[in-house]
Amino acid sequence: MEQPSRSAGTVRPGGRTARVRASVLDATQDELVEHGFHGLTMDQVAARAGVGKTTVYRRWGSTAGLVADLMTELANQSSPHADTGGIEGDLRANALSVLGALTDGRLGATFQAVIAAATCDEEAAQALRTFYSRRIGEWAHVVDLAVKRGELPEGTDGTEVIRAVSAPLYYRLVVTREPVTREAAERSAARALAAAKAGAFVIPGDDA
């Protein structure tokens, strides 16, 4: 996964519906950052966005619906995977993008709020799964390209390689509460690459 825009409300097509959605998602993100998922209310989002409560309830239905749409928008804003010409540079770019997202004051707080919500709310968990499935799937292509170039063994699972890059960073963020540093990001990318080259992420054949 790489870093989406800082705000969910930037660069959208015109029209009243688009403007309302932009305002509501910006307000949702602000409320998440300030109050967390369990402090998120439809009324406060509506007031912050300057939108009628009826509109918010009718379109999004619940706070989980707001979070799901916010995560969809953040995924839509994310850029395509890097293409540095080599798997080492691509995985490093992925790690640094994750680092940028997690250490951004607004975006990092958003992720932490949704991750916390996902532990006890299935709709929030589904929104989170959908977001990361899209982003991991996008970056898995760099592994497929590396296999075609002969940099990695045939059968290497790109999804698992990308997960291995970011997993230690998220562990620091939400489990041990340690600083997520550039050094940690680069080290994580290097270790994932070494494991991938050694065949650790090769999908076993049917006869394995």
Rank of each mutant, 00 (worst) to 15 (best):
R191C: 09
A194W: 01
A125D: 11
P179H: 10
L173Q: 14
A184V: 11
A184N: 05
G158H: 08
D121W: 08
G89P: 04
M71G: 03
I87G: 03
L99A: 00
V202H: 05
P80L: 03
A167Q: 14
S133L: 12
S166L: 11
A192W: 07
L66R: 07
F111A: 03
R182E: 15
D69G: 02
L96I: 02
S166K: 12
A195S: 14
T176R: 13
A184M: 05
V174W: 04
T159G: 15
A198C: 07
D104M: 04
A189N: 02
A101K: 14
G199T: 09
V161Q: 11
L91G: 06
E154K: 13
A194V: 12
G150P: 03
A184W: 07
D121E: 15
A95V: 07
G100D: 14
T130E: 15
Q77E: 07
A109S: 15
M71D: 12
L145N: 12
G86I: 00
E178S: 11
V161D: 10
S97G: 15
F201E: 10
E73I: 06
D90W: 03
A116E: 15
L173N: 06
A167V: 11
A95R: 07
L145V: 15
A146K: 00
A93M: 01
W139D: 15
T72Y: 08
R92C: 08
A75E: 13
V142G: 04
E154L: 13
T110Y: 11
A116T: 15
D83R: 09
Y171H: 14
R106C: 06
A189F: 06
E186Y: 00
V67E: 00
N76R: 13
D121R: 13
V174A: 10
E154N: 09
Q77R: 08
T156V: 10
A189E: 04
A167T: 15
E154W: 04
L102T: 07
